[in-house]
Amino acid sequence: MNLYLYLDKDTIVHRLDPRAKILILICTFAIPLLNDHPLWVAGATLLILIYGMLARSLGNIARIKTILVLIFIFSSLMWFVFAKGTTPLFWRVTRESVMYGLATGLKIDAMIIAGLIFLSTTKNEEITQGLIKLGLPFAVAFVFSTALRLVPTFVGAGATVSQAMRSRGLDIDSGSFLERIKKYVPLLVPIFLSSIRNTDSLAMALESKGFGNSPRRTFYLQLKWQPFDTLFLVFFVVLTILNAWAKINGFTSISGLIK
């Protein structure tokens, strides 16, 4: 079972400089946030999906489609009720709150997808390198990428522990919400302890390989900024600026929504 998100492919997005990809990630987070109207958000989502298609990373998105659908449904439903509008449909639901709910659900999904494309196309070491070149100290960048690296390890330990417990008769999938939470306690202890043990051996392995030996270190991966990096980045930055301008002028909002 492969728990890593990175997809080893050779696409134009994979070849982008990590610095460009980090900045594009910020743009692809900002763009959905700058829009309130569902049609505008749909446009932003489409843009991100096209980016993902170029990166041939839609397979990873398909892996979590259930989660994406659930997030969409729940956040939509919540805002159907809680957002306030001027054109009542039924009960507390208004035409504007429906639009707002759909837009919010889609927005969150779009941002998750943007993050996923980034992780599918950028190696951990490239993220570290990119962050350093963007001005972060090595230690901070290393901690960040190591945290990302440990996620699949924890997920793997979690899968093994839950199999061990299910073999002993633990039925995780039934009972009320509270009962289910209680059932997770036997899972958490072994996962937690094995994670501590893992990080401990990781620390020993790092030290044994000379980590932190001298303040200066070289990097095997050499980043090279190329013309198409500029092209991609300029495209996303310009879109973000235009989008911000549209928001300030009120083009992207839902008329009749009471804030």
Partner: peptide
Amino acid sequence: FSTSVELEVAFGPENFNV
């Protein structure tokens, strides 16, 4: 802890400023 075989092997010498 690296994401490719090559980078895993490169990690040690990197620390020694090679």
